[in-house]
């Protein structure tokens, strides 16, 4: 599980923090965060709570979270749900808030082969379109909004 951290270390600034069981990640212009030994980011990126209703909109929005591209979700009004990734029904019962935040920010830390985009990362890309260089897919607050929404998904299908 920890291999991913070493792999992306070249692209990001990692430094050992005062606590031996955490990793500190800092990219230019982005909010820094700590990854715990259990691969979670426990603190809100913005210090503020997320807006779950906005998070749900971001999950649907094709230019933002677009979670529906790959995941089946309890969003009945949308006809098409992807199936290249696990269903998100009940995801809040399987992952903690900090683990969900890690998955949204940079899922490659826990699975280097995942096809899931890193929604809060600007470095280490090949041939990014110049419109997106230095930009994240979601803002720090949008990450929090999506996390807040996912935390409401506590029922199985």
């Amino acid at each position: 599980m920890r291999i991913g951290v070493a792999l992306i270390a070249g692209a990001m600034a990692f430094s050992m923090s005062a606590h031996a069981d955490t990793k500190f990640v800092k990219e230019d212009g982005l909010v820094s965060y700590m990854i715990t030994d259990s691969m979670a980011i426990n603190k809100s990126l913005t210090g503020a709570a997320g807006d779950a209703a906005n998070g749900r909109k971001l999950a649907i929005n094709r230019k933002k979270g677009n979670c529906l591209a790959c995941h089946v979700m309890p969003i009945a009004e949308q006809q098409f749900h992807g199936e290249t990734a696990p269903s998100l029904y009940g995801v809040a019962t399987r992952l903690s808030e900090g683990e969900l935040r890690m998955q949204i920010v940079n899922a490659k830390v826990t699975n280097e082969d995942t096809m899931m985009p890193s929604f809060y990362r600007t470095t280490g890309y090949n041939r990014p379109d110049k419109k997106f260089i230095g930009k994240t897919i979601l803002s720090a607050q949008e990450v929090e909004d999506v996390v807040a929404y996912l935390m409401t998904l506590d029922k199985d299908e």
């Binding site: 096809m115 890309y125 041939r127 379109d129 897919i137």
Partner: peptide, 17 residues
């Protein structure tokens, strides 16, 4: 090779899925 901001290779969709 992964490319672009979405960081995917051809294989992620067309070989694995």
């Amino acid at each position: 090779q992964r490319v672009g901001q979405l960081d995917m290779s051809c294989a992620h969709c067309h070989e694995d899925n």
